[in-house]
């Protein structure tokens, strides 16, 4: 059986990944090889009985894979590893010993959903966590995304900005940049709706930019009008929507009523 290959490869991976700084290139190559081995042994979607030890190793390989994808910023790959890990976390939770990487990975997944603005998914995932509700706040890995979500929903963007360095695990920092991107876009869309014009300097502070040139670039992306001499951004106004009578809809409705009345009388 090819499980004889599993153990040496796994040891190599562990060495490559835990060395400081971790050897991402070798890890990637080893992960690809290990995935083939896992599929050959059927450990990737375990259906029959395997020894607990093999299952733990398989889980660990997938976990390293998930971390590795975040370090190399490969989101789709993280997504795949995470869904493969679901089997181990949910269905085998009574057989396998608890993995200390489980909650960091679940937390990372929550942040990923947050960044992609999939709030409904975020809440369904949160709801299905195997934790009683008051422990959600106690667990540092889960508390972080939960707080972020609350602030984002409230609109307390400055709190999000301040919390960006308080990541509970190293991997969380890899999300900071994309998180900032999400926040800036959120703020920008709020500003478009809420202001008629805004001084450049204030726009920079609101958007957490350090220099004016960054603001200018960002403004260009969003298509804002900039008056450089006065130093003011004007937001393009969405013209007042004209009140129009939806004729076709009204006609269709009336015809439908006529038909129904005909049936009754």
């Amino acid at each position: 059986m090819s499980s004889s290959k599993l153990h040496p490869l796994y040891k190599q991976l562990l060495r490559a990944f835990t060395s400081r700084p971790s050897d991402l290139k070798t890890s990637g190559r080893l992960l690809a090889e290990l995935k083939v081995v896992l599929i050959e042994t059927g450990l990737i979607f375990p259906q029959t009985d395997y020894s607990t030890q093999d299952l733990v190793i398989a889980r660990e390989i997938l976990e390293i894979g998930a971390f590795w994808s975040i370090r190399t910023k490969a989101m789709p790959s993280f997504d795949r590893y995470f869904s493969q890990l679901q089997t181990f976390y949910n269905d085998y939770s009574s057989i396998l010993p608890h993995s200390e990487r489980e909650f960091p990975i679940r937390g990372l997944n929550l942040i990923r959903l947050l960044i992609q603005n999939r709030i409904a998914d975020f809440h369904t995932t949160l709801e299905s966590l195997p934790l009683p509700a008051d422990e959600l706040i106690a667990n540092p890995f889960i508390r972080h995304p939960v707080n972020l979500e609350r602030w984002l929903m409230e609109g307390s963007y400055s709190k999000v900005w301040n919390a960006r360095e308080e990541a509970p695990a190293e991997e969380y920092k890899f999300f900071v940049d994309s998180l900032m991107g999400t926040i800036r876009n959120e703020i920008a869309s709020c500003e478009e709706a809420a202001y008629e014009s805004l001084p450049l300097k204030d726009a920079a502070t609101l958007l957490f930019f350090r220099s004016q040139s960054e603001v200018l670039d960002f403004a260009k992306q969003r298509g804002w009008l900039i008056d450089l001499t006065r130093g003011v951004i004007t937001f393009t106004q969405k013209g007042e929507e004209k009140l129009e009578i939806p004729k076709e809809k009204l006609i269709a409705n009336n015809l439908a009523y006529a038909r129904e009345l005909e049936q009754i009388v």
Partner: peptide, 15 residues
């Protein structure tokens, strides 16, 4: 907590 927060929150409510 701060006026800054208030500004963001109101902006979001408008949007």
């Amino acid at each position: 907590d701060s006026e800054e927060d208030a500004e963001y929150i109101v902006g979001k409510a408008i949007r």
